[in-house]
Write a protein that binds this DNA or RNA. Structure first.
Lengths: 213, 213, 213, 213
DNA sequence: CATGAATGAGAGTTCATTCAT
DNA sequence: CATGAATGAACTCTCATTCAT
């Protein structure tokens, strides 16, 4: 379905980061880049804007990172791996599908609070970035997330906790979209706590919006 | 909250299209552009790509359109105004909040089938485009859509049809995201009919995913 | 009278130069641009030609300047302000209108020698450039120059030094055109010294070409 | 002295006009083009602007003219040949150098009234256009004009009418510039008659601006 | 670590011109 | 005579990236 463009707009350079171990300056720069990528988009953000925000010249960024993509890469990896582990832990610790589902939602909103920028980038730029080999792991991560959620949904259906007439894949998408898309309007510094949203969403999701008679 | 970027990367040119009344060729070109903007993103699509797909040279596009933005503009206006009217009609014809809500969802998925590309662009590029005066109407349209949905939700709560403990704004966002975000995976030519998705989503939305005891 | 063309062919970009303080390279590039603008015209000179002459790529110019217009802007400002001050000084130091006039002519030809390119650009491109806000100061400068000269002429008429039957405005234009237009043929490196021309012109201007009987 | 650029920005096409005999429509179009070339400059005027002003599409102009240059060519030739003849006649009819000079000035200002646009183009665009073979006649015409004026000046000096200490070439340039440059500010429809200006200029030129004691 | 000058590819856009209808 | 669609070359400008200092 996706038009896969061969190789363009991304340097041919294999990959790799200049120094894996991160100095503090590095982390600062990464945070700045993440914020800009998240709010303006990866393509719409220039390395000069990142450098400006950091108070250095654009060329100087290349002392810390190989390329603009390396920054996105590092930001995304820094979010995906912990998130993967967090989901696994939820699955291990949950006793039944319903609490598992609720915990997955809660964990997701917690991530929204802590990794707002990274999630926005993952959400908005995956399609574009995944065109390039280097970012192949994005699709893999998305698939693993899907397996995580659908397993819970299927278990729930089997145990009669979730309604049997639901299409699991469709339901998964429903949930995923509703959770991750909040990144577009959720403000970690705003007055609406992630937990509050999570609880509301869990209720709508489980019981629907209609008042039972 | 949003970082508002001043003015760049979009020509200051007031607006206006070369010819408002559309020839047939024009419509073809617009469809090509819409498809590309939708699948690759506005920034990631070059006018040369659009022209290539149309079998002409990039410069020739400018016989029909003022600029790349003009194309996006025309595509978006062509979707928003009819959509607005469709929502209004739903509101006029619906007898009670619950059917109103269901109809709004159905109408939205119908739009997804007919205006897939335009909706994707509206969804993905609004944030970027709305920075520019010319696209101010995007925010206005979004606001009007919000009013439409929240009115139905509030009416429903007042009449006791929808649960009273729901935050209306949050619920609206929930619904909006779930509906529009489907644009990312929904394939109008695929085997999953928009109506099927709509019905499933309406059920989840209204009754939740949990099997009542 | 003048057809005022709205806004095109000049970027809307407010103004501003990349760095106000000038490095040495900057000055070299500016000199090259000035020479080309002067001999070929602003529109007829491409940034590639400027870059070629400087031995760099056209894109590299944008490390130093915001735009082609920025270069013209800087060239013109670098000439107008000193010129304004020079005229003021002539006025302050002159004891009578006749020597004032002669000194103004001399100062103008001296400028021709030092700022040949800038004057040519001011002369030839003002009409075109002044269409754009950014170059509004060109008209202001022209007006101030006019006031300078007409004041001297009026003083001279009042004191009976200059003939009373002369239309001051017309006479001013006469002088201005004759002085500045020399830019079209005057060659600073040629054998004709600016001073020689100035003296001849002063004589013609003051006493006419007719041999008194 | 002039940098002569080989061949660019002017079609290689030999020359020639589509139809020598001029229809009326043709004359109208030419007048429109002349006005635009004069006020905006040759390069700054697009064929589309000419066509717009004429109420047709740009491509339609090519039914009447070979190229944009052909228009300039025709406009310039239409002015130069009559002007040449007019100068010749002045020379034939004048009885002495002083009246000859005065008549040349008067004739020039009369031309300014009738051929304002053409003169402006001749004045402003000669340098640019003369780069191209096709417009070689511009230099020839300029040379002939120069010979006309300098002959009168030399005759006058020989006969003791004009001051002997004047450099003839310099004086010629002085006069030419002062006369032709008026094209920049002279408005044929304004309240200042060409004759008035001519008389003032003749007086300044002959007797100077200084009040004789 | 950072600067500052440069590269090189490609972007959007303009415009004179052509030509079938 | 004019239209409308297209060409093709050139233009100004952007931006990720490199590298000597």
């Amino acid at each position: 379905m996706d038009h896969v463009v061969t190789t363009k707009r991304l340097s041919a350079r294999g990959g790799g980061t200049r120094e894996s171990g991160g100095s503090q300056r590095r982390a600062e720069l990464l945070a700045i880049a993440a914020e800009l990528f998240a709010t303006r988009g990866f393509l719409a953000t220039t390395v000069r804007e990142i450098a400006d925000e950091a108070g250095i010249l654009s060329g100087s960024l290349y002392h810390h990172f190989d390329s603009k993509e390396s920054m996105a890469d590092e930001i995304l990896r820094g979010f995906l791996e912990p998130q993967r582990r967090a989901y696994q832990q939820v699955l291990r610790e949950a006793t039944d599908p319903r609490t598992a589902l609720a915990e997955l939602v809660r964990q997701s909103f917690r991530a929204l609070q802590d990794n707002h920028a990274a999630i926005a980038i993952f959400q908005n730029e995956s399609k574009y970035l995944a065109q390039y080999e280097r970012f192949g792991y994005l699709r893999k991560a998305a698939n693993e997330f899907e397996r995580t959620w659908t397993r819970v949904l299927q278990d729930g259906q089997r145990e009669g906790v979730f309604r049997a007439d639901l299409d699991v894949k469709l339901t998964y998408r429903f949930i995923r979209d509703m959770v991750w898309t909040s990144v577009h309007w959720y403000n970690p510094k705003g007055k609406l706590a992630a937990e509050t949203i999570a609880e509301q969403y869990i209720r709508i999701l489980c019981e629907g919006i209609v008042q039972p008679e």
